[in-house]
Simulated scan of single mutants.
Amino acid sequence: MIAHLRPACVLLALFTVLTGLVYPLAITGIAQAVLPSQANGSLIVRDGKVVGSELIGQSFTSQRYFHPRPSATSAADPQDATKTVDAPYNAAASTGSNLGPLTGKLVDRVKADIETLRAAGVQGPIPPDAVTTSGSGLDPHITPENALTQVGRVAAARNLPADRVRQLVEAQVEGRALGLVGERRVNVLRLNLALDALRS
């Protein structure tokens, strides 16, 4: 029995070291050497201070900024730990809402979001990502169409010509990966930072 147990224990220890220590350290080292920004979270730094990540959405609610798509993330209810409360852009709880298309809560939220957009002066079709959440609840991107529907509001709040803000949006549009994968998109954080850099 010991003759069978010894090789099993040696292999367990060997593969634990190889797959639990050597392999992760090697991959981390390669990532740091080849793609250091991505390996460290694609952080965006302004004036020596981290302001966010290209990969995780943030909540912007001021009329002076472009707004991201709605977020379905939640957090533990401080009053009752067995329940949750809405906590938009909570990176510790990345999740979709799991609400089906006929769920009253989802229908009511989408209707309220549409009414808010109409009250803000959005005319014509409303881009779906302006009223629907992403699967993670933390999507940092919106469609160019969503960004363009917000140009009037942002331009008015900043006393900027709408054409100038529209040009900024168009300059921030990212294409498909390798020209084939995904959709054209706008990173909301990068767009808002570029907006702050504009001179009126």
Rank of each mutant, 00 (worst) to 15 (best):
residue 18 L to V: 15
residue 79 Q to H: 13
residue 183 E to Y: 03
residue 198 L to V: 11
residue 38 Q to G: 10
residue 96 G to D: 09
residue 31 A to P: 11
residue 46 R to I: 12
residue 95 T to F: 01
residue 74 S to M: 12
residue 15 F to Q: 12
residue 165 V to L: 04
residue 135 G to T: 10
residue 131 V to Q: 08
residue 105 K to F: 01
residue 33 A to T: 15
residue 177 A to F: 06
residue 99 L to Q: 14
residue 169 V to R: 03
residue 11 L to A: 15
residue 7 P to A: 09
residue 24 P to N: 10
residue 10 V to Y: 15
residue 187 N to K: 06
residue 181 V to H: 01
residue 107 V to N: 12
residue 65 Y to I: 00
residue 155 A to G: 06
residue 166 R to N: 08
residue 171 A to W: 00
residue 79 Q to Y: 11
residue 135 G to W: 05
residue 114 I to F: 02
residue 20 G to N: 13
residue 125 P to Q: 11
residue 165 V to F: 02
residue 130 A to K: 07
residue 10 V to W: 14
residue 36 P to C: 10
residue 130 A to D: 11
residue 109 R to P: 01
residue 71 S to T: 08
residue 112 A to I: 05
residue 119 A to P: 13
residue 3 A to T: 14
residue 97 S to W: 07
residue 163 D to H: 01
residue 22 V to C: 11
residue 102 L to P: 01
residue 139 D to R: 06
residue 65 Y to G: 00
residue 98 N to A: 13
residue 153 R to D: 01
residue 8 A to N: 13
residue 180 L to E: 05
residue 70 P to M: 01
residue 68 P to T: 06
residue 177 A to Y: 05
residue 18 L to T: 13
residue 137 G to R: 03
residue 80 D to A: 12
residue 80 D to K: 07
residue 96 G to Y: 07
residue 176 R to V: 05
residue 69 R to C: 05
residue 130 A to C: 06
residue 128 P to H: 08
residue 123 Q to E: 13
residue 40 N to C: 02
residue 85 V to H: 04
residue 171 A to P: 06
residue 36 P to V: 07
residue 54 E to L: 08
residue 87 A to R: 14
residue 38 Q to I: 05
residue 46 R to C: 03
residue 80 D to C: 09
residue 24 P to S: 09
residue 184 R to T: 11
residue 39 A to P: 12
residue 199 R to W: 01
residue 156 A to P: 04
residue 28 T to P: 02
residue 181 V to K: 01
residue 88 P to C: 06
residue 106 L to R: 15
residue 194 A to L: 02
residue 54 E to Q: 14
residue 114 I to K: 13
residue 4 H to V: 09
residue 186 V to C: 03
residue 29 G to L: 07
residue 14 L to S: 14
residue 17 V to H: 03
residue 60 F to Q: 09
residue 184 R to L: 02
residue 59 S to W: 00
residue 138 L to M: 11
residue 72 A to L: 04
residue 198 L to K: 09
residue 167 Q to W: 00
residue 20 G to E: 11
residue 51 V to K: 11
residue 53 S to D: 03
residue 24 P to E: 08
residue 95 T to Y: 01
residue 60 F to S: 09
residue 27 I to N: 06
residue 107 V to Q: 12
residue 38 Q to R: 12
residue 88 P to G: 09
residue 61 T to V: 12
residue 162 A to I: 02
residue 54 E to G: 15
residue 96 G to E: 06
residue 68 P to Y: 01
residue 35 L to M: 15
residue 42 S to E: 07
residue 105 K to A: 15
residue 146 N to H: 15
residue 147 A to T: 10
residue 153 R to F: 01
residue 127 P to H: 04
residue 29 G to D: 07
residue 136 S to I: 08
residue 189 L to G: 05
residue 52 G to A: 04
residue 170 E to L: 13
residue 48 G to A: 06
residue 191 L to P: 13
residue 13 A to D: 02
residue 115 E to Y: 01
residue 127 P to S: 09
residue 53 S to M: 02
residue 185 R to P: 08
residue 118 R to N: 10
residue 66 F to S: 04
residue 132 T to S: 13
residue 45 V to W: 10
residue 172 Q to H: 07
residue 166 R to L: 02
residue 179 G to Y: 02
residue 171 A to D: 14
residue 37 S to R: 14
residue 59 S to V: 04
residue 96 G to L: 09
residue 48 G to M: 10
residue 132 T to N: 15
residue 165 V to A: 04
residue 136 S to T: 15
